[in-house]
Amino acid sequence: MENAKVIQSADDIDTLWVIVRCGKNLYGFDANLVGNMIALPQVTRIPDSINYMSGTISVRGMIIPLIDLRAYFGHKSADLVVEEFWDQRLADHKNWLNELKASVDEKREFTLATDPHMCAFGKWYDNYKSDNRILAGILVKFDLPHKRIHAIAKEVSTYVAEGKIDEAHHVIEKTTNTELKAMEKLFDEIKQAAREVARRRIAMVIEMEDRTLALDVDEVVAVERISDYEPAPQYQTSHLGITRIGRRNKNDELVLLMEELEF
């Protein structure tokens, strides 16, 4: 924010902001508008609703709309991101085995990763740590079938070099029906577990003069004052209700301030 014009008033100094995380960004809401923050309850879907309308939830007996803040800002929902990630990792290994078979049939070199630590899933797997015991318990089960899948590349290569094409095909088919099936089952399990974890996200209830609604956010970070502001770039954010950008006093993180709620 160097060289930016700071906007500040007496009201600003006294305003408490509820800062939430959604995706990679922080968003700030006037604490006076935040009526409640609860664990995300069961959502009732509404057919043919606007893309960022997740549905409705019941809060203290009142049915209110739930806004997916990620979708509102044009990003994929957290549920969809998780689904796509695991679906792609399964597809990677199906494609890996298909390419191994094709390399045998077409008598050409197999060029995909044979080291289980070097495929996209392996790189992620080696570096990801989960504090959730259910997720961690499922993840550890991937290690053996994942390594066994990649290990057959060397075995198949040896059979091909010896002219034993039928044996090479047998190894690939057996791995497809065992290790790959095991991984497919684990992917289904972890997607279900991830959905359960996602349901523990926070619903932040916003109480305006004319209506009440809830926002589906990833995390409530803090409730604090912000003393440094600048106007938000109009072409980027003003149409989304973000009029200013603040900087947290604690660590200088940027906060997109939603002051004109237009949901």
Results as ranks from 00 to 15, higher is better:
E2P: 01
E2F: 07
A4Y: 10
A4S: 11
I7N: 09
Q8P: 05
Q8L: 12
A10Q: 09
D11N: 13
D11Q: 15
I13R: 15
T15C: 12
V18I: 14
R21Y: 08
G23E: 07
K24F: 13
N25Y: 12
Y27K: 08
A31S: 13
N32Q: 10
L33I: 07
G35P: 04
G35H: 03
N36F: 09
M37F: 04
I38C: 07
A39K: 15
P41E: 06
P41C: 02
P41S: 03
P41H: 05
R45K: 10
I46L: 13
I46R: 06
P47R: 04
P47D: 04
D48Q: 12
S49F: 14
I50F: 11
S54R: 12
T56F: 11
T56S: 15
T56R: 13
S58A: 11
R60K: 09
G61A: 02
I63T: 13
D68K: 05
Y72K: 11
S77V: 03
S77H: 03
D79S: 14
D79Y: 15
D79M: 15
L80W: 09
L80S: 11
E83A: 08
E83M: 13
F85M: 08
Q88K: 15
K94A: 02
N95A: 13
N95Y: 06
W96V: 00
W96A: 04
A102C: 02
S103M: 03
S103E: 03
D105N: 08
D105V: 15
E106Q: 11
R108T: 01
R108F: 00
E109F: 04
D115H: 02
P116M: 00
C119H: 05
A120F: 04
A120R: 08
F121H: 01
G122D: 01
G122P: 00
K123W: 04
W124L: 00
Y125E: 02
D126E: 15
D126A: 14
N127S: 14
N127G: 00
Y128W: 00
D131R: 03
L135H: 03
A136L: 02
A136H: 05
V140H: 03
K141D: 10
F142M: 05
D143F: 06
D143K: 10
K147R: 10
K147V: 01
H150T: 04
I152Y: 00
E155P: 06
E155T: 13
V156N: 02
V156W: 01
T158K: 15
Y159R: 15
G163N: 03
G163W: 07
A168F: 08
H170Y: 12
H170N: 14
E179N: 11
L180I: 06
K181L: 11
L186H: 07
L186A: 02
E189N: 12
I190A: 06
K191P: 08
K191N: 07
A194L: 02
E196P: 04
V197D: 09
R199P: 01
R200Y: 15
E207C: 14
L213R: 07
L213C: 10
D216G: 01
D218W: 07
V220R: 00
A222N: 14
S227H: 13
S227N: 13
Y229M: 12
Y229K: 14
Y229Q: 09
E230Y: 09
P231I: 02
P231T: 04
A232P: 06
Q234H: 14
H239R: 11
L240C: 06
I242V: 11
T243L: 12
I245Y: 07
K250H: 12
N251V: 02
E253Y: 10
E253K: 13
E253L: 10
L256P: 05
L256E: 11
E259W: 11
F263N: 11
